[in-house]
Write a protein that binds this DNA or RNA. Structure first.
Lengths: 335, 335
DNA sequence: TTGAAAGCGCTACCAC
DNA sequence: GTGGTAGCGCTTTCAA
């Protein structure tokens, strides 16, 4: 691997000059520039990012912290974040949190010791505001941006790029009411998930809008993750208990599919006996039968949004603390 | 951010001593060690990986190159790779290739200029062996391991950790024959995908084993990706053409679900009219109805396998060029 | 317009 | 057992 020195020697100039030519900054004699450039080409020189990073004091990369990359929405986000970052010349470090608070703190500490440019916090779990204070101080001191993606953390002062989930839930309720699928049950992580709480609030607001009284029997807070199995179990138990819902809003497409499976296994028809509506807009939702009605997720907007906020923060200007992107309802067969 | 110097000053020793204490190497007077350690704690010192990396000449990270992170198997792989790497103190850089050959070369070049420890090549696309020669030479020169994950690339001399897909296809054929689901169609990327070719070879071998003649009408090579839409379209067209298959082996769970949707939309029952069998073992397969019969993927074995090969390569010993892990059939309802 | 040189934070070699 | 010091590759003053 050739270094600046090699190029300098080959071109018969100093390393400073080579560096300047490469950075395209300050004035260089045309023929010097020419010579340097051809040496660079001849040697196949590429700058060593390690040297640059050490000098600059930070590495041109961003950490993406996800709850569980196997969940479709995180995977999709990872893809779009990587694309957006690459356009800005940055790399993506992926960290799977697995819903652990401890691990969140560790990874955040890691980000500061690694001198990253920023951290994209994309987990739906409860964020222990107080416990995070020390790390956040160090992050700030090191000039590392902490930005929430896919959830709204402005209440604890973290700039966020998120969906307007409160509105989304209201849209869902409206859709189900209009089609006559009442009473409407709500299945999600609620208490233990910030995102879940917001969506739940939207659900309640939606009911209120249509003059429907809330019914605790229709509110299914699940302790586990947002995955298939939880949806299956909760739905199966609700059916067994004889809860008379005519539709279910599920907090993720995974939960929704699990719920659909349980309903089918219990001999219920979808949507005739019970309608199911998910959150996420994952691609497979269009291919299961009946096809899943869901609220889409705009992960590419998040990738771009993150970069915008990151640059705004770096530029010193205080970024808009929150930018909310709306969800659209994808009406298919299940509801 | 405190540096070695700060700690040294605080503890009243030289930076060399601090470094030694931290690395736990060579002998240190107990009380000196004590003093240094308490200074480290007092200052909240954490080593700067940039300095370490520059010194060492490489960064403790590995690039994972996937075809499309949205495909479930890649997401699952990403998760398990990250876990396995973290256990070895390495980070995971994620790159989405999007099936582009050019981009593959670029990213590989990037890996050498970044001085990574290794590259995990996990795309099912055709690898242009000749076109890659120059980069591979640079990779080798820089001591960066290139390891194929999830596919067998030994034929072009790349150490691989992969599934035994030839055997897997034979198992699939055997299963379908035994249940009477013949004739068996094969739907996948074949010509344009190395992995696809291996699986196809297994399909042919399986037919031969059971004394069944191959029938070109049953061999559906698809040009597009391994995703849902392709599965849907190909299946729909086959049905329209009146191809008389009684079952379909699909090259991915996504293709399989797409095929199932097309069959259902055409009024066919699964598996009574046509059975469908996928590749991947993705979690949602257990929750669609009918539940998908599939050949599982052991991504956690790949994470560990990659690390093993990486360390073997680093240790100078030539790693076993290929380690094949078997797939198990998960027999559910669809076939 | 160009060169010399000072570090960025770290490890390892060589003295003592 | 400990300290001094030479770089790793780069950018950026400061001089010339």
């Amino acid at each position: 691997m050739p270094t600046l020195h090699d190029v300098a020697r080959h071109a018969g100039v100093s390393i400073a000059t080579v560096s300047r030519v490469l950075r395209g900054i300050s004035s260089i004699a045309p023929d010097t520039r020419e010579r340097v450039l051809s040496s660079v080409a001849a040697l196949g020189y590429a700058p060593n990012p390690l040297g640059q990073a050490l000098r600059a004091g930070h590495i041109n990369a961003v950490a993406l912290l996800v709850g569980d990359i196997e969940q479709g929405w995180y995977a999709s986000l990872a893809r779009d974040m990587q694309v957006a970052l690459e356009e800005e010349g940055m790399d993506l470090l992926l960290f799977n949190l697995g819903h652990s608070e401890t691990r969140l703190r560790e990874v955040l500490e890691r980000a500061v010791s690694m001198r990253l440019r920023g951290v994209a916090l994309a987990t739906s779990d409860h964020i222990p505001g107080a416990a995070l204070e020390p790390v956040r101080a160090r992050l700030a001191e090191a000039g590392i941006a902490l930005i929430a993606v896919g959830r709204n953390l402005e209440e604890i002062g973290i700039p966020s790029v998120a969906h307007d989930d409160e509105q989304a839930s209201r849209i869902a309720v409206g859709h189900l009411v209009q089609r006559g699928y009442t009473p409407i049950a709500y299945m999600s992580r609620i208490r233990k998930s910030a995102t879940g709480r917001v969506r739940f609030a939207g659900y309640l607001a939606g009911l209120a809008e249509h003059g429907i009284a809330r019914d605790p029997a229709m509110e299914w807070d699940i302790a586990e993750s947002y995955r298939f199995k939880a949806g299956y179990n909760v739905m199966r138990d609700a059916i067994a208990r004889g809860v008379g819902m005519r539709s279910v809003i599920a907090g993720s497409d995974e939960l929704a599919l699990g719920a659909m499976a349980a309903a089918r296994d219990a001999g219920l028809r979808i949507p005739e006996d019970v309608a199911v509506l998910g959150f996420g807009g994952l691609e497979w939702g269009g291919y299961v039968r009946p096809a899943l009605t869901t609220l889409d997720a705009d992960t590419s907007a998040f990738g771009k949004g993150f970069c915008t906020v990151l640059k705004a923060l770096a530029g010193g200007g205080s970024a808009p603390p929150v930018s909310l992107v709306p969800r659209r309802l994808i009406a298919r067969e299940s509801a």
